[in-house]
Each structure stands twice: as structure tokens, then as C-alpha cells.
Amino acid sequence: MATLRDIKRRIRSVRNTRQITRAMEMVSAAKLRRAQTRVEKARPYADKMQVILDNLSAASGTVTHPFFAKREVKKTTLVVVTSDRGFCGSFNHNVIRRAEKFLSDYTPETAELVCVGKKGYDYFKRHDFPVLFSLNDFAGNLDLAKVRRLSNEMTTRFIAEETDEVYLLFSRFESISRHRVSLERFLNIEQEEDADAGGSGVNYIFEPDPVSIYDDLMPRYAMMMVQMALADSFASEHAARMIAMGGATKNAGEMIDNLILVRNKVRQAAITKELLDIVSGAEALKA
């Protein structure tokens, strides 16, 4: 049986762990709130941009932009969005498993991988799938310069025909306890096929003309898509970490309770033993 000292040490150590997990839970909760408002506040912008794009597609008819180009697919790019840090339950695992499933249909010749977040990068580096490049150290914050870099890199490669389609794989934030791994087509951007279906039926004046507006709009649209995906993923990451750490804090609490019971029993046993010694010693003297 463990000695009293061992148990006391154990309790102290679990208590420390609980303190840390509790702190992490609270930090994640605060970060989650920020990330969540960011997701919500970015939505009107995204929606409006979609409206403009739909109207533009509807009105411009045959005019197209290179981002819409549909080609025979020789090379596919998958952008996998994971977190930089762990301690977030199955968050990364879910994304990586989905990525593996996706990649099982491809070979390193027909697909390439771009990682956002260290966890995904580390995993695929170990598992022999070539990673084209990776963007790390977001630390759960949206860095617009990095978003722009990622978006530009993808669109440049797409236009240069180094890749023929690009997918984003990320965790979509639905609620604090629900985030779904989601695969979204990034490039080519799908255009409303039917000119009448898109748009709101309003006859817009385009100034100067649809083509130049496309040139201005599409890079921003691409960046917005990447930004939304990352914002969703970050919110999900913080939510996952908050829940994982909340669970850990609870488990640590239970463990402490159990250990305290054991400690009390051991201490009682020691006292009983000592009493017995004293009593039997006294008895022996009397005799």
C-alpha cells in the first residue's frame, strides 16, 4: 500500500494540474468569445460580397474571370486547417482523419497539401505526404497578412495552372459543442450556371464595367473565403479546447476526491496501528 507521503504528493500534483487546466479553460473561453464575435461580425460582409458577385455573374453573361476557369483536373490542392497547439480533444484528429480519407483517392503526383497549423503539418511530415508549404503560428488569431499570403499563393498557383482545383478542409463552427469538419471548394469558384437564377433581378449599372469589377472583386472574394474558413476553424479550436479542459478539470477534481479518501484511510490505519503498539506495549509492561 502507498505510503501517506506518496499519496499527499500525488494529491498536490493533481491539484496543480487542475489549476492549470482550469486556467486554460478560462483562457479558451475568453478567446472563444472573441473568435465567435469575429465570425458573426464578418458574416454581413461575406453575404454582401456574395450578393455583388451573384449580380455580377448574372449581368455579365459571357464575361468570366480566371478564378472561374474549369479545367480537366490533373492536380488537386488540399488546404488543411488545424491548430498550432494541442490540448483540444479530438479537434485536430477529426480534421486529419478527414484529410487522410480525401487523400486516399490521390497520389503525391495528383495532389498536394498545404497545411495551416503545426499539428497538421507535423502529422503529414511524419506520414510521407509531401507538404507544399505550411503556415503556422497563428496561435488562434487571424493575421490578415498571412491570410492574404495564403490566398494569393493559391490563386497564383491556380492561374499559373500549377494546380487545377483547390479545396479548403476546416472545422466549421456551429455551436460551442458542435463543430463539423467541412470540405469546401475554393478554386475554381463556382459560378451561377443559369444567368437568371443568380442575382436579385435588379438591373445594375456597373461602373466602369463588369470586367474591371471582377478584377477588383475576385481577389477580395478569395481572401474573404480563406478568412471565413480560418475564423471558423479558430472559433472551433477554442471551443474544443475549452470543452477538453473543462473535462480535464472535472476529472482532476474527481481524482482528488478519491485520493483524499485513500489518504484518510491510510492515515487512520497508521493511527490505529500506533495505538495498538502503545496499548500492547503497556500491556506487556503490566505483565
Binding site: Y204, I205, F206, E207, P208, S212, I213, D216, L217
Partner: peptide, 19 residues
Amino acid sequence: PGALGYLGVLANHAPLITP
């Protein structure tokens, strides 16, 4: 500040999209 220079918008303006 529109793409073709500054432009004013008043109520009931015609539908317009411009950078």
C-alpha cells in the same frame, strides 16, 4: 471615391455597383 472619380448618391439612386 468611385473607380471613375468621386460620385454622389442621393435617395432613390439607380442600382449601381462600383469599386
